[in-house]
Amino acid sequence: MQTINIVTIIDVLGALSKGSLQNNIYMVDNSWNSENQGTSDLVTSCYPGQPINWIIHAMDVQTPVLIDSINFLDKDRQYSVSHGFDAKPVLGTAPHWYTWSGIVPCYLPAGEYRYSLKLQMGRGQNSIMYSDAPALNVNLL
């Protein structure tokens, strides 16, 4: 099955100036039927068993941003442990290349699964921001 890339673009200067990711985060993917492309509310269509990569880029090459963690949320937008497909940084095939990647579990019922992106922009106070808006939409095969 084709791997899906979910690419997040952050306007780091905008986010740090305003102290908020609102209007400074843009998400796109290369899935076939995703909704809200180009917004913070991207809903990525995927199938059970499909691999997903999360890639992040800063708008300005001089302002790095990293994904600190990815957590799936339950209905109350609390961190959930029940889905069991929290992304982990896995070792790529090249030395020193770590990427955020995960596989949609085969046993997962169809539906929308919201997740939280924890982003780190440099160091210091207010360098960590969250977005709880994106989701995966798991379809039945």
Partner: peptide, 27 residues
């Protein structure tokens, strides 16, 4: 930034539905 869903754009033969442009002049 010119974000392109390459596979989809090639299949469709046009960029219009598969391109996303983002700049840092929103403010």
């Amino acid at each position: 930034l010119i974000m392109i869903d390459t596979a989809a754009a090639i299949k469709a033969g046009n960029l219009a539905d598969h391109i996303y442009l983002i700049d840092n002049a929103k403010w």
